[in-house]
Design a protein around this nucleic acid. Structure first.
Lengths: 208, 208
DNA sequence: TGCAATATCCCTTTTTTCAGGGATAATCAG
DNA sequence: CTGATTATCCCTGAAAAAAGGGATATTGCA
């Protein structure tokens, strides 16, 4: 009997998914874990026909889980089911080899459709999410690609350090920090530190 | 027959709540809306024994919904059920007269217990949420109370406007904006704009 | 009514950021 | 190897914010 693994820390959501699958895809046997850690352990002893994956997990992000799981088991079918509608999260999820991405606000029909498609080896992206990816009308502005150093500096800026303080902490010159700062402003098309930090936080580049 | 109103935009969550109540509290009839707006409309024609309320709604926050609903119907029983575990949100919810606050990560037993308690006129706060309120170990730092004007200025600062630009927009002097800015730095105990904005965004004072 | 909180306006000095350059190693992928 | 990217360092001048005062209306609540 094929097995479905639900990785989700909200009981009401996982219960609902379990019921839904029981009712509509009775040939699938549902298993349930609440953490990424437990999920990886489960995978060591079981073969999953499909994994239903939340992106917000208590111990690590669903993206990380997906990356690790796929590195161990090449042919996993992973369907992300989450309430996150941010471009960069979807991008990361797809880059991590996730096969489907739907929202918790999807109706049950769409969820079942996604489960079927993903189990059959296809990709399934929620239409509202697909719009995001296409850069439709008011889609989020593209996020710039930052270097490691730039991310490092950005975080320290957001923590309220001045150029000089950052320079001391990273053992570099304040001029260098200033260069990174200017590049950050340029890449984000930001006028000043305030909106730079706001954008960085809201877009998830800075974890809080 | 007493009625329960579920205000929740994620079908899988509302379905699950409906099933749970059907199974365990059969004397309650479940109704379901996905927006605060529809919820208020429903209340105009119906009497709810209890409202199960999500905090993240598409059209307004659950807090606002609670405030408006209570101003119209004094004796409503409102149970917030959400995944938000931030101090200031819980504080706001209680201030808005919400009778119970539980998390989506609660097990079904706790959810049912909360429903019963709230319907009977008691308060019910999830233990993990109660810990937050008690200022346990690593509780979030207290957030300062801001005036309306300060919030207004804070948002414009976070949008990258300079004091002068804010002054022009609000038809006040740049000196005044500077005063507000200094008060904000003081209230947040922030050293500069960067960490001020970061704190404001991560704590939810600035909606994104 | 009267006090407290809020909102407003004003000044100086110092620090920091912003905008405009330019330049040289190190690293890394094709 | 080579060229592109990254990280580093440097300069100037203007603009803005931070720190430090102080002062006067207005408003809302007790």
């Amino acid at each position: 009997m094929p097995k479905a693994l639900i990785v989700e820390d909200h009981p009401i959501v996982s219960d609902s998914l379990t019921n839904l699958i029981h009712a509509s895809v009775p040939e699938l046997e549902c298993y349930h874990v609440t953490t990424a850690h437990d999920g990886l352990a489960w995978l060591n002893g079981n073969k999953a026909a499909i994994i239903l994956l939340d992106i917000n997990l208590p111990d690590m992000s669903g993206i990380e889980f997906g990356t690790i799981a796929r590195s161990r088991f090449r042919d996993l079918k992973i369907l992300a089911i989450t309430s996150i509608e941010q471009r960069h999260v979807v991008d990361q999820a797809l880059a991590a080899g996730i096969n489907g991405y739907i929202l918790k606000s999807s109706d049950t029909g769409e969820i079942l459709e996604a489960v079927h498609q993903v189990m059959n080896g296809n990709k399934f992206i929620s239409t509202s999410v697909a719009d995001l990816l296409k850069g439709k009308p008011n889609a989020n502005a593209e996020l710039p690609v930052l270097t490691r150093r730039e991310v490092e500096v950005l975080k320290l800026i957001a923590d309220g350090l001045t150029n000089q303080e950052i320079a001391d902490k990273l053992f570099i010159s304040a001029w260098t920090v200033d260069s990174h700062r200017k590049n950050l402003l340029l890449k984000f098309n930001a006028k000043n530190t305030a909106i730079l930090v706001k954008t960085a936080v809201t877009s998830g580049i800075i974890s809080f």
